[in-house]
């Protein structure tokens, strides 16, 4: 049994590397983009706010799998082609930025108007006000929702198999079918659980760090 598991490990680890690559690149790009999306969505310039609303609706209202398919298989028809990994990252980042955008919007809207007014009468610029006064308070508020999204992202990475990228779940599935065994899938499940456990602990730490004020 143990020796069987050992034979599986190389391909599963390879899949894990792809999963982590998609995960981290998506996270690093989509969170800042989400902040921008929320600002656009809250913009007093109506066309910008409306277009952002439409974007959020499309991204949240259709399956991520279809978005990947359209970007990788659909865009080449109109002459825009990406390699597999880039296409996947574009789809994931656009999709997750919409979710993060809505989370940040909720956070920004929950900040008391008095905070903006205090910053304004002190003469702080709108940019400084957002970066120094509003955003730090928003981050504390949205952390639990962000951590929820992050855990969903870990599992959503399995969708990249659709363009033929070998990630964790695909590695398990191939071995499972080849060997007519559930063991590879159990192994893959354990890997996902370990990943989510690590990120949960990490987020708890971050939340604790933000609990220095009430």
């Amino acid at each position: 049994m143990l020796s069987y598991i050992l034979t599986l490990l190389p391909s599963i680890l390879e899949g894990l590397v792809m999963t982590l690559k998609v995960f981290f690149v998506t996270l690093v790009l989509s969170i800042p983009l989400g902040v921008i999306v929320s600002i656009f969505r809250l913009s007093r310039f109506k066309p910008l706010s409306k277009i952002t609303e439409l974007y959020i609706w499309v991204m949240r209202g259709s399956p991520l799998m279809l978005q990947i398919v359209f970007i990788f298989f659909g865009l080449p028809i109109v002459g825009i082609a990406f390699d597999r990994f880039t296409a996947v990252i574009i789809a994931f980042v656009l999709n997750y930025a919409a979710y993060f955008g809505e989370i940040f919007r909720g956070g920004i809207e929950s900040i008391d108007r008095g905070q903006y007014e205090a910053a304004k009468v002190l003469g702080l610029s709108p940019y400084r006000t957002f970066m120094r006064i509003i955003l730090p308070q928003v981050i504390k508020i949205v952390l639990p929702s962000i951590s929820n999204e992050v855990i969903t992202l870990v599992k959503d990475t399995s969708l990249v198999y659709i363009v033929g990228l070998g990630e964790l779940l695909r590695a398990g599935k191939i071995a499972s079918i080849r060997d007519v065994s559930l063991v590879p899938l159990v192994l893959v499940t354990v890997a996902y659980l370990l990943l989510t456990a690590i990120f949960t602990v990490a987020f708890n730490k971050i939340e604790k760090r933000y609990s220095y004020y009430e």
């Binding site: 008391d112 007014e117 205090a118 009468v121 002190l122 702080l124 120094r132 730090p136 004020y213």
Partner: peptide, 30 residues
């Protein structure tokens, strides 16, 4: 604006900053 100091009814201090940080934010950046 700098000539008018304002103390709001509910003070509107910045909750994520210490007393010192609350006070020096504007003098430094404005």
């Amino acid at each position: 604006r700098q000539k008018i100091g304002m103390v709001f009814q509910n003070y509107n201090l910045f909750p994520h900053m210490t007393v010192m940080e609350n006070i020096i934010e504007a003098p430094i950046h404005v």
